[in-house]
Design a protein around this nucleic acid. Structure first.
Length: 991
RNA sequence: GCUGGGAUGGCGGAAUUGGUAGACGCAAUAGACUCAAAAUCUAUUGUCCGCAAGGGCGUGAGGGUUCGAGUCCCUCUCCCAGCACCA
């Protein structure tokens, strides 16, 4: 008798499968079913697993990730599905690069070697991947399309540059997305993340916040992931409400305004009419010169015009719209005396800005502005940008704001430059009031003070009005202090601090009461409006702050609520009294503010200051600004360089490659430079599953026809760590592509399962330092791939977020099972020509059970039923050859090698993995006799065996007889017969 | 703190969705084989009382609904994961 020699068997069949390419997946199911056009798609099944980082070595987790879903792939294939089960490598990114640096190797070489090695390891699992569709993200034929897709988003205004405070990892020397920061530390290297202001490429995922939430509902995903994503996006519905300001020192603070209108305009036309009126009504002195020749502007002429006619002093705030903004800056340089402030509304930009070529007058316009001097001359500077300008001119405005050290305020102009009817927006940013966001407008009656975030633009504005605030120095100190705090400090330092703005009060619009205004860093600048109304009676944080600074606490009562008893006052909600919260909120929102929805989600920062990534396909032209690389020039290849080490200057190592950096502007053909930051690897992985459908396509990222064969993904299996990262990014990406008409559906994955985690034998996470790492190669060497695969499937339910320790004894149990299978097949005396009727019933039950369990991803119970069947066969000592072949087929998805060997040993020529899945015979599922449990008062008191077709009364009669002795002396008040299960006699205590 | 998911033998886990709790595997104990060990095979294995027949108790705790609850409802405890000054 031959012994079970897993090494020989596994090597043999892996070679054979590879040679015969039995897992290459055609786009449409072969055979008669694909004759009809619709049948092809129906029979296709796209099973996706997250592709690995080629970081070096496969670990037990990879086995769990690839080999267990492989069971499903194989079973579905046998059940007649045309299964796409592809694989590739997420080859760009930090882990690979860090490892390369550590080992002093070129990242590409290192990555490619790893891929070669890991491919062999993956093959050793006996997985049925279709390697012909392999995707490697660091190959130019892949990242060409990553760049192309990025440019589609860029052209749609979904990718834009912005100067923002970002998470900077000092160790990895790169910017991180919010999703990559855990507890204030770098997700990868654990170094403390610091805040740094940098110009970064952002992707406007926030535009899709609502759809990302709303489209979750119909997906067949674990509730946990859906909830996490909703939570991460953090939608809250509330109201924005204005609180007017009142300054004590009216004389000192009173600014006057100089309004400079824009191109082809006049003070009586589209510009400034409304703004002038409003300001004058408030008692401000307003000057509005009518600029000459605005359709053929010469800035010297205009500056002279204003200089000759208008008076400017240290209380003047100059507001320049569009072209007027340039005039304002030039004017200031000419006057060369300090003013209160400078506001540039959708300012004009340097020659060569996008669209400038359509305006020939511009070519005479000289720029030449001394930003440093302007900073000295102005108390505050604001750039008011139109959100429409983000895509086109956003980068310019960001740069201008940076040069001027100005606040950028984003307005939402529907018309260019906020002219005409949109001027109120301009005023809204300047007039003396602050807008707060609240989810509880019904508590406004209890708002006893206001709090602004230290970075709130209004604070700067107020500080710029000299003499407006009496404690300017203290405030400036507080702002500086909190700016230094890292996010970590702000989290751990729960003790609330703040400082009152002396010299100003706000008016609570609901009570007309004067309330104090504070700045405090417990209010976040980037959420809502960066300002809150504090209601200490109804908000814990406000309560804490109010207690510390001895501020009044007023509880709002409305009908039905219990009056507040204790410290503080009660306040009546007046005419809103009696309204239950929801209705009250609505009524008050309508009366005092506007409904507003805000999100916790922030835009996705994709710039990485590292070498090993996809080059951002953008060219910076001094005349034309940020310009997309033309399609014919894609891909922008990553140059092979020696010095790829990050240096921490805030620039990617690519910036040092002068030859690569210099480029021609695609628009004006002038001298320009390439963007040197690379893209986040989550960009690469946001669309890789589309490439699998058409991986060789040279003309498109994937043709619509090929996509249609497979998309959306039927089942996506992966780790829980990607819940708010990859899964969110790729959903967004797909929606953006859908809107661009590039994909056919708005959600990429129909069903998702999160796999569990494999721990070390000690129940701890596997790690080299703990010394509890299981090397799968070793386990395979000793026990065989079939055993390891099957053990991982047997260890516990796959589709759950749980974790299982690798139990060396448990693996042995599975190995024993396979050895017993092997031994039975070697014993010819057990097998007979005809079927063993004693096995038939259990065999057919097992067919049903295994099929059902695989479909519901309960691989552990499927295996257990195979074990039960084997136990019975051994006990019986006899099984028909045909029956045995059925058993081998059932085993095939789990242990593909041994099944193939036994299948061929039984005299079959074709691969078992191309065989049809056995079908069960419903007639054979039926038991002849069944066991009925007898209960008395719900307690089990015995059992009887009855023919399975016995009727109710017969069963009851038999049961009564079986427990007659116990029933004696009791009165049966009720009898419950559950067919096929039990009989329960309900009896009284004693007769 | 908020959100989601859990808690079943010595361990991993089953339980037809309200119907014999502990399938299957591991570990453990005893026996067979062996000079011996390993491997293999056989038997036992939730727990307590009992020589036994038999009985009591048992799914984190307490209460409820029901003929019957691991499963449904209420209250509480603990564990895991994610988020966290988000107004």
């Amino acid at each position: 008798m031959k012994k079970y020699d897993h090494k020989t068997i596994e090597r043999k069949w892996q070679k054979e499968w590879q040679k015969n390419k039995i897992y290459a997946t055609p786009d449409k199911a072969p055979g008669p079913s694909s004759a009809k056009a619709s049948a092809g798609k129906k029979d296709n099944f796209y099973l996706l697993v997250e592709f690995p980082y080629p970081s070096g070595n496969l670990h037990a987790g990879h086995w769990y990730a690839f080999a267990v879903p492989d069971i499903l792939a194989r079973a579905l294939r046998m059940q007649g599905k045309n299964v796409l089960y592809p694989i590739g490598f997420d080859a760009f990114g930090l882990p690979a690069e860090n490892a390369a640096i550590k080992n002093k190797l070129n990242p590409r070489k290192w990555t490619e070697e790893n891929i070669e090695f890991m491919k062999k390891q993956i093959a050793s699992m006996g997985t049925s991947f279709d390697w012909s569709r392999e995707v490697i993200t660091c190959n130019p034929d892949y990242y060409k399309w990553t760049q192309w897709l990025f440019l589609q988003l860029f052209k749609k205004g979904l990718a834009y540059q912005k100067q923002t405070a970002v998470n900077w990892c000092p160790k990895d020397k790169t910017v991180l997305a919010n999703e990559q920061v855990a507890d204030g530390k770098c997700e990868r290297c654990d170094a403390e993340v610091v805040q740094k202001k940098m110009l970064q490429w952002n992707i406007k995922i926030t535009d899709y916040a609502d759809r990302l939430i709303d489209d979750l509902a119909p997906l067949d995903w674990p509730e946990q992931i859906k909830e996490s994503q909703r939570n991460w996006i953090g939608r809250s519905v509330g109201a924005e409400i204005d609180f007017p300001f009142e300054f004590e020192n009216k004389n000192a603070s009173k600014p006057n305004f100089l309004l400079l209108h824009g191109y082809i305009g006049s003070p009586n036309g589209s510009y400034h009419k409304w703004l002038k009126n409003m300001l004058e009504r408030k008692g401000y002195l307003v000057q509005v010169p009518d600029l000459p020749n605005t359709n053929e502007p010469k800035e010297t002429e205009q500056v002279k015009h204003v200089f000759d006619r208008c008076r400017v002093d240290e209380n003047t705030i100059i507001i320049g719209h569009s072209l007027g903004g340039t005039v304002a800056m030039k004017l200031l340089q000419k006057i060369n005396r300090p003013v209160a402030g400078l506001v540039l509304v959708a300012p004009a930009i340097e020659a060569g800005f996008p669209g400038a070529e359509e305006r020939p007058y511009w070519k005479d316009f000289s720029w030449g502005i001394n930003y440093e001097r302007l900073k000295q001359l102005t108390g505050f500077r604001i750039v008011l940008a139109d959100t429409l300008e983000k895509g086109k001119r956003g980068a310019y405005l960001a740069r201008l704001a940076e040069l001027l050290d100005a606040q950028i305020i984003e307005g939402q102009a529907k018309k260019e430059h906020f002219c005409g009817a949109e001027e109120p927006l301009v005023l809204a940013q300047l007039a003396s009031k602050v807008t707060v966001f609240t989810t509880r407008p019904d508590t406004i009656f209890g708002a006893t003070y206001l709090v602004l975030a230290p970075e709130h633009p209004l604070v700067k504005l107020a500080l710029g009005h000299r003499g407006l605030l009496t404690n300017e120095n203290e405030i400036a100190r507080y702002i500086a202090l909190s700016a230094k705090k890292t996010d970590m400090d702000r989290q751990t330092d729960k003790e609330k601090t703040g400082i009152r703005l002396q010299g100003v009060d706000a008016i609570n619009p609901s009570t007309r009461e004067k309330i104090p205004v504070y700045i405090a860093d417990y209010v976040l600048g980037h959420y809502g409006t960066g300002a809150i109304m504090a209601v200490p009676a109804h908000d814990e944080r406000d309560f804490e702050f109010a207690t510390k600074y001895k501020l009044p606490i007023k509880r709002v009562i409305s009908g039905g609520e219990l009056p507040y008893i204790g410290d503080g006052l009660m306040i009546d909600s007046g005419k809103f009294n009696g309204l239950k919260s929801e209705k009250g909120r609505q009524a008050i929102t309508e009366e005092l503010g506007v409904k507003k929805i805000t999100y916790k989600l922030r835009d996705w920062i994709v710039s990485r200051q590292r070498y090993w990534g996809v080059p951002t396909p953008i060219i910076h032209c001094p005349k034309c600004g940020t310009v997309a690389v033309e399609d014919k020039d894609l891909p922008v290849e990553l140059p092979e360089i020696k010095d790829y080490f990050p240096e921490g200057s805030g620039k990617s190592p690519l910036a040092k490659v002068k030859k690569w950096v210099s480029a021609k502007c695609p628009k004006c053909k002038g001298k320009a430079e390439r963007e040197t930051d690379t893209l986040d690897t989550f960009v690469d992985s946001s669309w890789y599953f589309l490439r699998y459908t058409d991986s060789k396509n040279k003309k498109e990222f994937a043709s619509k026809e090929k996509q249609a064969n497979w998309m959306p993904v039927n089942l996506y299996s992966g780790g829980a760590e990607h819940t708010t990262m990859h899964l969110l990014y790729s959903r967004f990406w797909h929606k953006a592509l859908f809107d661009l008409g590039l994909v056919g559906e708005s959600e990429p994955y129909k069903r998702r399962m999160n796999r569990s985690l494999i721990l070390g034998p000690d129940g701890q996470k596997m790690s080299k330092s703990r010394g509890n790492v299981i090397d799968p190669d070793e386990a395979v060497e000793g026990l065989g791939a079939d055993t390891v695969r099957m053990y991982l499937a047997f260890i516990g339910p796959y589709n759950e977020v749980s974790s299982y320790p690798w139990n060396p004894d448990g693996v042995v149990g599975v190995r024993r099972f396979l050895e017993r299978v092997w031994n039975i097949s070697q014993k010819s005396e057990i097998k007979s020509q005809s079927d063993n009727p004693k096995i038939a019933n259990l065999l057919h039950k097992t067919i049903k059970k295994v099929g059902g369990d695989i479909a519901t991803l309960k691989f552990n119970t499927a295996i257990s039923s195979l074990m039960i069947l084997l136990n019975a066969v051994e006990k019986e000592g006899a099984i028909g050859t045909k029956q045995w072949e059925v058993f081998i087929k059932l085993l095939a998805p789990f242990a593909p090698h041994i099944a193939e060997e036994l299948w061929h040993e039984a005299g079959n020529k074709k691969s078992i993995h191309l065989e049809k899945w056995p079908e069960f015979d419903p007639a054979l599922l039926k038991d002849e006799n069944i066991i009925i449990v007898i209960q008395i008062n719900g307690k089990t008191r015995g059992e009887i065996q009855v023919p399975s077709d016995s009727d109710k009364s017969a069963v009851e009669k038999a049961a009564r007889a079986a427990v007659a002795a116990r029933l004696k002396g009791h009165k049966i008040s009720r009898t419950i017969v559950v067919p096929g299960r039990l009989v329960n006699f309900v009896v009284s205590e004693q007769k």
